[in-house]
Amino acid sequence: MTEQQYNVRVAHLYGDLMNTYGDYGNIIALRYYAQQIGVEVSDQLVSLGDDFNADNFDFALFGGGQDYEQSIVAPDLQRIGSEVRRFIENDGPIIAVCGGYQLLGNYFIMADGTRVEGIGAMNIYTENQATTRFIGNVTIKNPETGEEYHGFENHQGRTYLSNQERPLGKVVIGNGNNGEDGNEGVIYRNVFGTYFHGPILTRNGNLALRMLELALVRKYPTVDWHSKLANVTPEFF
């Protein structure tokens, strides 16, 4: 008998269109940590016209894109929206960045004022700002774990959470979701949404390990992943 092969199957949602600021690095980071505990990470592009079956994936990355590409992705996403919502309601882990984060909500308003519908997987919404963007280094602190996360934000949208979601962190430096309420990002079930580029899982190893553990525990519940991951050193910068 060979040792059991563990693997994490990642869906890279619209990765050929929503790929603006190194978001693929999140998969590179996940794979880097997974390899250290003998877990293989494979990734598959799910793009315009492709099927998405929630049962075929253990993790998803939904990256950020330019307004133009995002407006093309939005209507196509409706086609697989119910399956993405099923993945989320079954506690599938997703890292959603910038445009991907916005599209999982109810709607977002583009820079030019056009309203684009999301899939309402979370009860969040995104307004625009007339002329400015939030650009710069950002540091947040997660109120539950006390962990600090580092990143770079570059967004025009202003996102607001409802009382059904928690923020990923409270802003220490930077603007966060909307520059007003001190929130950055979102946590809803196992969805982690954020405006962080950097990318977030490369710069914040603790979060990468936490999400990897969520994916593995969900898929292989009888294995003690926490002990295995305790020996892995997270990168943080």
Binding site: N19, Y21, G22, D23, Y24, G25, I28, I135, G136, N137, F152, N154, H197, G198, P199, T202
Partner: peptide, 9 residues
Amino acid sequence: GIDTSWIWD
């Protein structure tokens, strides 16, 4: 360029 994310692409 003040954002270093590009190195991951």
